[in-house]
Amino acid sequence: MNNTSQFHPDDTMLLEFSAGTLATAPSICVSAHLHFCSKCRAQLLRLDQVGSQLMSEAEPLELEEGTFDKVMANLDSSQQIPVKVDSQQNNYPFSVTKLLKNNLVSQTWKRLSSSVDVARFETGQEDFEVALHKICAGGKTPKHDHHGLEYTVVLKGSFSDENAVYREGDFLIRQPGDVHQPMGAQNGECICLSALSAPIKLTNPLGFLMKPWLRINPM
């Protein structure tokens, strides 16, 4: 809600999000970040102004006869008043809340390792696996490499790796070749949204024991 995020999607991603050309899985992550980051919301508004200016300069096309009447006949006299989501009860972004309600692959957390649980979402696309990861307080995740892109947004708590501490709202991209070993904060569990484009490769020699990390499992 506030503006504490330190790590943001770059301008190109925000622009593609504004223009509606960003793929579904990264869009879920960008929308989750926007929920927390007023700086990026302000940036997005300026990008939307560009789109709206271009639209208002687009060549107007004459409508088919009857389109206007059809619309006027369909106006409900009772307008829909927007329902305010109770943000105190649930500080998750709208898109994540909706996925949690309707699109969990399983209703229970699946254990990935002694300190990491996963809950996968069905998102109607096959390019990314979209999931929540829960790292227990002080939990160490297996050191891993990435074969593909991984987007992560911290939804609750914090974790750290060799480079920095990541807090609520922070948006991270891991590229192939990035090796890291995230650790949950000592003071509580950490929940992250992630979109993973390809299997993660473990660098730990016993990595094969952590098989689920190796798998991409789009529904």
Binding site: S27, S31, Q49, V85, S87
Partner: peptide, 26 residues
């Protein structure tokens, strides 16, 4: 043909807040 769980509109639910940029700046 697949059922899509999220519509694009779902990505655009911003928290109810004071305007992120003042009207003058906008």
């Amino acid at each position: 043909t697949q059922h899509l769980p999220l519509e694009n509109e779902d990505f655009w639910h911003e928290p109810d807040e004071e305007t992120p940029i003042s009207l003058l700046q906008q």
